[in-house]
Design a protein around this nucleic acid. Sequence first.
DNA 1: TATTTTTGATTGACCCATCAATCAATAAAA
DNA 2: TTTTATTGATTGATGGGTCAATCAAAAATA
Lengths: 205, 205
Amino acid sequence: MPKIGMEPVRRRALVDAALQVIGDQGTLSVTMSDIARKAGVSPALAHHYFGSKEQLLTETIRFLLRQLRQDTVRALQAAELPRDRISAIIRVSFQADQFAPETIAAWLAFYSEAQRSEATRRLLVIYARRLHSNLVDSLKRLCSADDAHRIAEGTAAMIDGLYIRRALGSSPVTAEASMRLTDDYITLNLQALSSLTDTDKGHAA
Amino acid sequence: MPKIGMEPVRRRALVDAALQVIGDQGTLSVTMSDIARKAGVSPALAHHYFGSKEQLLTETIRFLLRQLRQDTVRALQAAELPRDRISAIIRVSFQADQFAPETIAAWLAFYSEAQRSEATRRLLVIYARRLHSNLVDSLKRLCSADDAHRIAEGTAAMIDGLYIRRALGSSPVTAEASMRLTDDYITLNLQALSSLTDTDKGHAA
DNA sequence: TATTTTTGATTGACCCATCAATCAATAAAA
DNA sequence: TTTTATTGATTGATGGGTCAATCAAAAATA
């Protein structure tokens, strides 16, 4: 069996397995045995490659983050206009794999973990900042910096909130409806701002 | 030591303690010992009154929910106009005790638990439904039922999302800013709808 | 090519700590 | 005395982490 160069293969398999198990059980309180079994290896091997459960979990969230960034970069490359870029960012957040119940369950578990683990918190803050600054970059081309900040904050919150509600599984929050809701929020804000600069600045009482 | 009629006192103390410990540690993986110690009793007594850890936790989330409902009812009694009632609902969501980091950490932990525990999920769904229907009730007096639904969905998502972002502790999300952001979302939507029914239904290109 | 050596890959068995849950015993009211 | 309140001691189960040992491919050597 033992061919050389198994390390990267095993690491990847274990991270994948961790993601699956965490997503299934909806918690980080999964055992190394669970993860190892899913990956088809012994618990000892998981320790051998990752040193500790904590490090395996850290690698796992890093993987999630990396994936999300790649998707975002790709989506942004295909969009030129600021308004289109914003929609692209939103679309990535709700794309199939990200919005899958297991993935969301995993995210939720990591958010909860961030209350205890400074390392986890730092990683999630990176995600939050990245989303925010991506939004602000494009928004700035459409409104003032202040407004851009405010709108970005609201948009990010709405995205995160839709995730949570999806996690609960109440009210059939589809990916499409979520996208539309978030995109409308952007449109609404921009419209409101532009109507202020129009000749008529009020409406009938 | 043993006075009679201690049961309600102990139950309440244990639920309070559970809330504190869960909030501090940001997880439901707290020990009965932790909770009991905080409440100033032995772990055995906690089992005596609640039977199991799971039941104590269920009681704890019920307590949270009850508290939130009472606050909401009270806030709604003081508000007459639909638009004011909406603001009141929003205000309750971000009031001091609800928006405290420990409280949010506890909520987050329960959301995570809902992935596993059907009982917990059901309780959280109740909260979600209540928030939604409270919003819809007032919104319906200001717009169509369809729009009311949509706006309520967006508002609820934004509230939940602001909670999460607060939990992360990134970007100083104050309670006031959160309220304003959410309330603006309502205003923006209602304005957009009303402007559609105005005589002039467009703006300069 | 055949043989030996080396090294990465892998695991079963074990240790130790933690924790939920139980129970028998004690102490104070009623 | 009967009931209620309370706890210390105990236990069975679980899970992270360690370690010595095994196995097989690859590399070096004859």
